[in-house]
């Protein structure tokens, strides 16, 4: 990649938490602004630039239909498109509604024209355009962003963690929730978060989404043996990445 790649930080419907995490990098973020040129970042910058970028980071996902056009437009302008966070990768928290009663949603929809403007299912960006990389997490892990961007600038192929949360969790010497017969999604989920929730005394909620090799059935059997009710399992599977195909079998009965 050339000396100073042009970067755009875009947002569709989201909470801005991933962008706030970027700003929370403080000094490191300033250093990133020295090795890249941030052309577009409306959270903190006027929108004076409308041209091409080398890397587009997009937080959030499509909720309003018009956002599909915005997304396609960004795709056209960007050499590399990176989904920033869980919403952009899988649909995230807003996809919970896809598992609620659709008929009920429709009766709410009719009298309000705004609802008609919403997409039917909340999905990740890859449902609409080609996504080159995904930085997972709700919110993203700042250090991972720094590593990723630095790799891109250096012309290296960025390495994304392909191990489940459990690997990092063991390394951090936490006591396993599953051994305590408690519900934890660690074995299914992409690591890279340094098992932050378990370090802080809470089970994994799966915000980084299920791994390719995730053995959902085995974990479901284990939960069943522990006497954890299905409603509780369903709730935790649908918080963040319910629309992921890898979860579907577990969630939809």
């Amino acid at each position: 990649m050339k000396a100073k790649p042009l970067v755009g930080i875009y947002a569709l419907t989201s909470c801005s938490g991933c962008q706030v995490t970027l700003l929370g990098l403080e000094e490191k973020f300033l250093q990133l602004t020295e090795i890249t040129e941030i052309k577009y970042f409306p959270l903190i910058k006027e929108r004076l630039y409308d041209g091409r970028v080398d890397v587009a980071f997009i937080e959030g996902t499509v909720i309003r239909k018009e956002e599909i056009e915005t997304l396609r437009d960004i795709r056209k302008k960007a050499k590399i498109l990176v989904a920033l966070g869980t919403c952009a990768t899988f649909g995230g928290i807003a996809s919970i509604r896809d598992f609620e009663d659709k008929a009920k949603v429709m009766t709410c929809v009719y009298p309000n024209p705004l609802f008609l403007d919403s997409v039917h299912n909340v999905r990740g960006l890859d449902c609409y355009v080609k996504v080159d990389y995904a930085l997972r997490g709700c919110p993203i892990v700042g250090e991972e962003f720094v590593r990723f961007t630095t790799d891109l600038v250096l012309g290296k192929k960025p390495v994304v963690v392909e191990e489940p949360v459990c690997v990092e969790c063991r390394r951090n010497k936490n006591i396993c929730f599953l051994l305590k017969k408690k519900q934890c999604l660690g074995p299914l989920i992409y690591g890279g978060c340094n098992s932050i929730c378990i370090n802080e005394g809470r089970p994994c909620y799966g915000c980084r989404g299920p791994m390719k090799e995730a053995n959902l059935d085995a974990l479901m059997r284990l939960f069943k043996r522990y006497g954890i009710p299905f409603s509780s399992i369903r709730n935790s599977l649908t918080v963040f990445a319910g629309t992921s195909k890898r979860y579907r079998r577990g969630v939809l009965r």
Partner: peptide, 16 residues
């Protein structure tokens, strides 16, 4: 536990 979307606050207190 982190600055965005805190981990430790739970009903009844703090997990850590």
């Amino acid at each position: 536990g982190r600055e965005v979307h805190a981990v430790t606050p739970v009903v009844g207190g703090f997990s850590k």
